Simulated assay, not measured.
Amino acid sequence: MTTAKNKNTPARKRSSAKKKTRSGFSRFQKFSASALAAALASFQIASCSFNPHWSLGQLGAAALSAIHIPALESLRKSGWPADTGNTHRPAPGHAGQGTASAGHHRPSGTTAGQPTRTAASSATSFASCPQFFPGGRAPSLQVQPQQRELCFSGFAVLHSGLTKTPVFVAERLNRQLLLQGQGLQRTDKFYADARLPRMERSELDDYKRSGFSRGHMAPAADMASPEAMAQSFSLANMVPQNQVHNAGVWAKVEEDTRKYALRAQGDVFVFTGPVFSGPVQTIGANQVHVPDYLFKLVYDATTGRSWVYWQANSADTRMGPPISYEEFTRRTGMPLLANVHLPRA
């Protein structure tokens, strides 16, 4: 019996040593995983300032799948990281749920705020600034990649990160607002809109020595307050515009629109934007697209009348008769007045 006991003693020692080794390796695994997770978290915090769409869950999963560390390989085989069922699904209120995208907060009131909707959402809503649309309802347009809603004090912008220009800019004009803004000092302080990710916006350097003007879509002269005036110089409200056209015929279009709003009995809603139809021409390092045409859709909410100025972005453009709203939608595919009742022609 003594001999048998002595024979088993080394086996127990070996087994104990084996457990100790496994335990130590497990601690190393956990330490490696924790260190990597901490590094990823630090990287995420720094990265969010450049791209608010990155999430730690997605970034971590991508990074971990590309890293091969023995301790981590062993943990993967045991099911780490655990799949909780929401690794790749945004939480309610985040992008993909038809609300404001993750990392962006809607502004309070009617002043300038963060982008409120991206391509993860199904349609435009401008829930933070409905006052710029007829009946307080924005047109329900399918949101394309890298499109974002921006609310300012005096206008709203659907911005495209692909063209680095607005898709359209919406305003509400009336006699009271225009009289209130008369005599305001033009600021002329253009600025890149920091609410847009760097890869989706134009910069001041893009326009330098380009030969194009920074053409307002919502004109500075339409603004009713110093704050709105200053915000109208955001590059999110600009397109590269031919200098002669900007200072000449297009300036007359803007002036005529204001004159009409001063005479109107109520609100006049205006949609302005670029049209890209030919070979792509760009300016600057950020490749800001140069539009082939510009449009200005005017809708009188009191009479139901609407018309559209449609002009080539060219020095030789002449003032011509406006086109109908029906012709505009045929050319652009944008039913900007879909939420209002239009009288039959």
Rank of each mutant, 00 (worst) to 15 (best):
Ala119Ile: 04
Ala138Ile: 02
Arg137Pro: 07
Gln311Pro: 08
Arg175Ala: 09
Pro139Lys: 02
Asp256Ser: 09
Leu342Glu: 04
Ser202Ala: 15
Gly109Tyr: 11
Ser78Asn: 12
Ser122Pro: 02
Asp222Lys: 03
Gln114Gly: 08
Tyr309Pro: 00
Pro90Cys: 03
Lys20Ala: 14
Val169Gln: 02
Glu171Tyr: 09
Met223His: 05
His88Ile: 07
Ile69Pro: 10
Ala264Thr: 04
Leu196Phe: 06
Ile69Leu: 15
Asn86Lys: 10
Leu36Ala: 12
Val298Pro: 01
Ala11Gln: 15
Ala194Asn: 12
Gly333Gln: 06
Ala39Trp: 15
Trp80Ala: 12
Pro145Asp: 04
Ser26Asp: 09
Ala218Ile: 08
Thr272Tyr: 03
Lys189Tyr: 13
Gly211Asn: 01
Leu204Gly: 15
Thr84His: 12
Ser153Tyr: 08
Arg344Asp: 07
Phe31Gly: 04
Lys189Ser: 12
Gly183Ala: 11
Leu179Gly: 04
Lys164Gly: 06
Ser232Ala: 03
Gln44His: 15
Val288Met: 08
His104Cys: 06
Gly320Thr: 15
Asp256Trp: 10
Pro145Asn: 03
Gln287Phe: 10
Leu56Ile: 02
Leu158Val: 07
His245Ser: 08
His341Ala: 13
Ser78Cys: 12
Asn339Met: 03
Thr329Ile: 04
Asp256Cys: 03
Arg258Ala: 10
Asp205Trp: 06
Phe212Trp: 04
Leu162His: 10
Gln176Met: 13
Thr187Val: 13
Gln44Tyr: 14
Phe31Ile: 07
Ala345Gln: 05
Gln44Cys: 13
Arg12Glu: 08
Thr187Phe: 10
Ala120Trp: 11
Gly57Gln: 07
Leu40Asn: 09
Asn51Trp: 10
Leu196Tyr: 04
Asp267Val: 06
Leu342Thr: 05
His104Ile: 00
Thr329Gly: 05
Gly103Arg: 05
His289Phe: 09
Glu203Asp: 12
Thr116His: 02
Ser232Gly: 10
Leu40Met: 12
His68Glu: 12
Leu72Val: 07
Asn286Val: 00
Glu254Lys: 01
Pro226Tyr: 07
Ser16Tyr: 14
Ala66Cys: 14
Leu297Cys: 00
Gly273Ser: 06
Lys20Ile: 12
Lys30Arg: 14
Gln176Trp: 15
Glu326Val: 03
Phe190Arg: 00
Leu337Asp: 03
Ala66Ile: 09
